[in-house]
Design a protein around this nucleic acid. Structure first.
Length: 537
DNA sequence: TAATGCACTTAGGACCAGCGGC
DNA sequence: GCCGCTGGTCCTAAGTGCATTA
């Protein structure tokens, strides 16, 4: 991700946390209303918080729990190829059962899923099997599928006592493997089981759906624990990939999964001290952000007027994150995951700009797939900027490129001062109008009549009008400031193809008089006459 | 400085137990 | 007793972002 992206991403994290201010504040009130029952337990969260990145002093656990070995199918259950029963090798049969178990799922109807499964399945076959089984459509997993359905039914039909035995066995496993000792506290582990083999189920249109998730062996697993603790014992006949004692991390065991090459971790349960502390810190950051958010909002608004395109883009990105709580949108490797985006990775096709939509002006329509391929669809009215400013910026960019500079006009400071006074006056009027509107609304609420309704309408219009006038003056000020030492005339008259300007005016409904004076219109009469809005340079 | 690695959080969906209605 | 609904838990994919490396 580029520097701009990283800055945005950091800002985003904080602004997303702002979303939680209301709930955090209410929780805070709730907490203060309650008696603190257990000061000891509070201390527990605060004790030993290390500033040097150490996450624990002692860590002891039993290692992860492995899924059961594959149990071959009974002789009576067969896989069929081209209508004939075929006895598969254990490795190929196991992968076939993964597919058979999923037959009811929509996944198996998807071409990508089928292709990935078949490719990976063939890798597990013997030479002889590979020679025989060449087409998925000739494969019949029906009997295997039926076998597993029957097994599920059998499980359902177990007696109460039999179910109790299974439950007790599960509890025993949790007791044995589901806890660790961290700094002397017995803590629940979040996921103490190694993920079982199966077929990868990505979300959305994932290019790797159906690929074989291989069985994880002790030899794949790195154990993390205290040096002086009882080191977890690997299953008989196996050994760990590595045993390390890194207290800068919180995980107990890890391995690399084969489908995406990412690292999987065994970590603590959210109820643990470690996770609780981090959660607490997260909300503390959000609290700090609360005092900065006004400044951030002022900053991104100021950035919209920046001469640098990067800053303007950043300003818009942060504005949308703030307004819509979009995710940051990191870069992703193409073809490796589903095509999903966030704020910074949005593409042109995800956005439609409407001058008017559903009675509102300047509406941005978002339509994209976000995290987990969940569709985001939203129509958002945004703050309007004067189009003339955009034109002048383009003009200015050329002038800067060509170094068309000028001395600041002698009257510049004075005229800016006047403009500032005008803005202040307008702001005052706007404030007054808002007060009057508030008053009118209150009166209408107390005693609702036609007259009071009309008064509210009138005041609303007045506020809107003043807001627009104020915005216009502010834009004028920005434009003048940016133009202070730039001579636009030369580039406008000599370097900018007037047809581009004319087409732009036509496309966006900007009167040509706004950009060309009488002399310029005469000079460019040919362009005004011949150019349509779709003109391409 | 960009790319990559690593560690962590977030979040959707599967699964399961409990419950009420029929 | 069966069935469907609901809510909680578990599982793991899919994000984010800091740290490290090239």
């Amino acid at each position: 991700m580029n520097k701009y992206g990283i800055w945005v991403v950091q800002s985003i994290t904080y602004s997303l946390k702002v979303r939680n201010f209301a709930s955090i504040a209410s929780l805070g009130r709730l907490a203060s209303d309650c008696q603190v029952k257990d000061i000891e337990s509070k201390r527990r969260w605060e004790e030993g918080q290390s500033l040097d990145g150490q996450k624990w002093k002692t860590l002891e656990h039993k290692g992860p729990l492995f899924p059961p070995e594959y149990e071959p199918l009974p002789k009576t259950v067969s896989f069929y190829y081209g209508g004939k029963p075929v006895r598969l090798s254990v490795a190929a049969e196991e992968v076939a059962t993964f597919y058979a178990k999923m037959l009811d799922h929509e996944y198996t109807s998807k071409e990508v899923f089928q292709r990935n499964f078949f490719t990976d399945w063939r890798k597990e076959m013997t030479e002889e099997e590979r020679g025989l089984i060449q087409t998925l459509s000739k494969c019949d997993f029906g009997e295997i599928h039926g076998y597993f359905l029957a097994k599920a039914e059998e499980k359902k039909a177990l007696t109460k006592e039999e179910k109790q035995v299974l439950k007790e066995e599960a509890s025993r496993q949790v007791e044995e493997y589901g806890y660790c000792y961290l700094d002397g506290h017995r803590e629940r582990i979040g996921n103490f089981r190694v993920e079982p083999p199966g077929l990868f189920r990505g979300r959305g249109e994932h290019p790797k759906m159906g690929k074989l998730k291989k069985r994880v062996l002790p030899e794949d697993i790195t154990i993390n624990c205290s040096k002086d603790s009882n080191i977890p014992v690997p299953p008989r006949g196996h050994h760990w990939k590595k045993v390390q004692h890194d207290n800068a991390v919180t995980w107990l065991a890890s391995w690399v999964e084969n489908v995406q090459g990412s690292i999987k971790y065994i970590m603590l349960n959210p109820s643990s001290k470690l996770k609780g502390e981090r959660d607490w810190q997260k909300f503390e950051i959000a609290r700090k952000l609360k005092s900065k958010v006004d400044m951030i909002r002022r900053q991104y608004r100021a950035d919209w007027k920046s001469r640098e395109m990067k800053k303007r883009q950043r300003g818009v990105a942060v504005y949308f994150i703030d307004k819509l709580a979009l995710r940051a949108g990191n870069e992703k490797e193409e073809g490796e995951t589903a095509d999903t985006v966030g704020c910074c990775s949005l593409r042109v096709e995800h956005i439609t700009l409407h001058e008017k939509l559903d009675g509102q002006e300047c509406v941005v329509e978002f339509d994209f797939l976000g995290k987990d391929s969940i569709r985001y669809y939203n129509k958002v009215p945004v703050e309007k900027r004067e189009k003339i400013l955009s034109y002048n910026r383009a003009n200015r960019a050329v002038a800067i490129l060509c170094n068309h500079q000028r001395a600041a006009p002698k009257t510049f400071e004075k005229s800016m001062q006047l403009l500032q006074e005008k803005i202040a006056l307008k702001q005052e009027k706007l404030d007054e109008a808002k007060e009057e509107l508030k008053e009118a609304r209150n009166q209408h609420k107390d005693c609702s009549t036609d007259k009071s309704r009309k008064l509210v309408d009138k005041q609303e219009k007045s506020v809107k009008k003043l807001e627009e006038q104020l915005k216009k003056l502010q834009l004028q000020m920005t434009d003048r400031e940016e133009n202070k030492v730039i001579a636009l005339g030369t580039s406008k008259l000599n370097y900018l193809d007037p047809r581009i300007s004319v087409a732009w005016c036509k496309k966006f409904g900007v009167p040509i008089e706004k950009i060309y004076n009488k002399t310029q219109r005469d000079k460019f009469a040919w362009a005004i006459d011949m150019t349509e809005e779709d003109y391409q340079f």
